[in-house]
Nucleic acid binder design. Sequence first.
DNA 1: GTCTATATGTGGATAGAC
DNA 2: GTCTATCCACATATAGAC
Lengths: 213, 213
Amino acid sequence: MNQPLARPGAGAGRREILEAAATAFTRRGYASTSMDDIADLLGATKGRIYHYYRAKADIFLDVVLTGMDELIAGIEPLATAVDVPPADRLWRMVHYHAGLMMTRHSFQRVAIQAVEMRRVGEVPARQSTLDTIINLRDRYEQYFADVIEEGTRQRVFRKVAPRVATKPLLGALNWISLWFDPERGDYASIQRLADEFADFVVGGLRLTRASEP
Amino acid sequence: MNQPLARPGAGAGRREILEAAATAFTRRGYASTSMDDIADLLGATKGRIYHYYRAKADIFLDVVLTGMDELIAGIEPLATAVDVPPADRLWRMVHYHAGLMMTRHSFQRVAIQAVEMRRVGEVPARQSTLDTIINLRDRYEQYFADVIEEGTRQRVFRKVAPRVATKPLLGALNWISLWFDPERGDYASIQRLADEFADFVVGGLRLTRASEP
DNA sequence: GTCTATATGTGGATAGAC
DNA sequence: GTCTATCCACATATAGAC
């Protein structure tokens, strides 16, 4: 039997609960998900959950922060690779984001919704936690705005306002988490879809069509 | 006093309730909205609501169908105007859709979420009603796929798969209903945003950049 | 047609056995 | 650490007065 890694604050118990909760919230939404629903997915009763979390809202916020952390941790090194030309850099960022919407569907769907839809308002949470979430989102968007801005300055992207372009661009990608059905997507088809989306989105910004087939 | 128009199935009482419900559902989500919340917005008690609607789910479905009807009713004449060049036709369709996300924010946000996010699963509804909603959505998407297909055939759009391109395109537009704050948008700024979005989205599909500034 | 009760069910959270 | 049992608040829906 494998010994679970004793990472502080992320014991095996919590991690399992978090996964189950992400799945449950994805399926039914925050308000419609009961603690019994989550417990059922664990094959346990809610007594177990309350041993690790004080309240349903706490689990939810943990799912959201985990999802956002996955996004930022993956994007940051791509966004700060200044030696990569802006169009390629954006392509990789878009590809990663699109891929995560599918490979980490449950966490991402919960996080994206919480952040953008002001669904955090549904959840009783401390103001400091809410501020943290909003700050993370703004920082994340800025990575995209920055690379778009650099691309327009170098005349490889058409002349768009970076902050305005970021909205439809991330909207198109985030939308994946809403229609994508994790039951119907193997690894290969997910990769193909992420490729198509990255080609499409970055292609829409490109000024030269030299590489167009 | 004005005599209310006696349109069958849409009396003044029902209409008022529908508007209040759309606002409430937009603010708190379906599950978190109580009948008392809706009644409060009406300055009444829930006894009034139950005089017109048998159940909360019925109101919700009415909001969804109203929103989808607004979308389709506006898009259909634009999509079937075959004398208009595909790029212009798509521009008008995109512009209308983007505008509706803002001018009819509450109904559209509820409808879009219900349809795309399988949030209909949260609501107890007859299968026939669910089928109606899915059919309306598919028909709507097809209008966009058709005009994109025509544009690619005429070589005014770059070579994309119409059905694949429809997803990010509508995703970018639908996303507006999530981040747009109806409190902070007068008519002029809404028009400007719809213009920018239509320019951006259609510009991303265009093959020639002749009209680029 | 709109109100004030109220019946009834569900779900978050706790207490305490094991 | 996980369970069962239970408390209690809240929300849907109904009954019946006005």
